Computed example of a mutant assay.
Amino acid sequence: MTAEPHEIWTLRHATAWVFTANGNLTRPVILVGDAGTELADLAARADHGSYSLRSELAARGHDLILLGLPDDGSMTGDGGTVQNTVTRAIAECAGDAPLAVGGTGQGALAARYALAGMEYQRIDHRTGVFFSHDGAAPELEDEAELSRMGERPRIPRFLRLVDEGKGDGLDEEAADDTITGGTAASGGPLLSEEYDSWLLDRLPS
């Protein structure tokens, strides 16, 4: 049974579920789901009975913030929602530990655009790691906007997870570290145990 979130954030055009490791927000990991994924489904896969990313994060002292996106959003609009989530996490976080921000599918693209945009605007996103799992490639009309922002965030370490047969429009050299070859089973854990362990070992300490 999926754990209940400790807090629910109502954001513009979206909702986030917050799972804290020790009662207070101290080391946030923001994970943005693919477009149209219900938060309950996202949470169930992040807390799957066969392998729980939420539990593994908590065991290492990391908090998990799950963000759902509408199925009819845009890169720029969804990116604004991610920026709002990052800003709120920084405001509510006790201490100054760096964040980890990323997502899967369209959520990864939204996180990529959000952090790149904050850097372009010289806004401190306090993010130490940006991670992308099967990140969606930008639509043709979004490519110029993303390029104007620098293509991707440059300050955080970039971790790239790409399933077999998937692509995100980025060269492997664009990332600081890449893992490939995994497969996400429908209805199974959000990430494979191999991917989870790889990511956990590379999160900000």
Rank of each mutant, 00 (worst) to 15 (best):
S192D: 00
D34C: 14
L199T: 00
L66K: 11
E193K: 04
L64G: 12
H13C: 08
G135A: 14
S55M: 05
G73Q: 02
L161K: 04
D201K: 04
L64K: 07
G188T: 02
C93H: 10
H62P: 04
G80Y: 04
L170F: 15
A136S: 14
Y113I: 06
Y113H: 08
D134S: 12
G128R: 02
G167C: 12
N84T: 09
I179P: 01
A137N: 03
E151K: 15
G61P: 09
L140F: 09
V29W: 08
E172C: 12
A116R: 06
V29C: 11
R154G: 06
D78F: 11
N84M: 05
G150K: 01
W198R: 01
R154C: 01
E38H: 10
S74W: 06
G188E: 01
A97M: 10
V162W: 02
T2Q: 10
A184K: 11
A108K: 03
L31Q: 09
E172Y: 10
R126V: 07
L190Y: 02
R27W: 11
H48V: 06
L161D: 11
G68E: 15
C93L: 09
L25A: 00
L66W: 09
E4D: 05
A144Y: 06
D124T: 14
A40K: 15
A91N: 13
H13F: 14
L25H: 06
A59L: 11
R60S: 06
A108N: 04
V82K: 02
F130N: 07
T10W: 08
G49N: 10
Y195M: 12
E151P: 01
L11N: 07
I123P: 13
A89Q: 13
A91C: 05
N84C: 04
A174M: 08
W198Y: 04
H13P: 01
I179E: 08
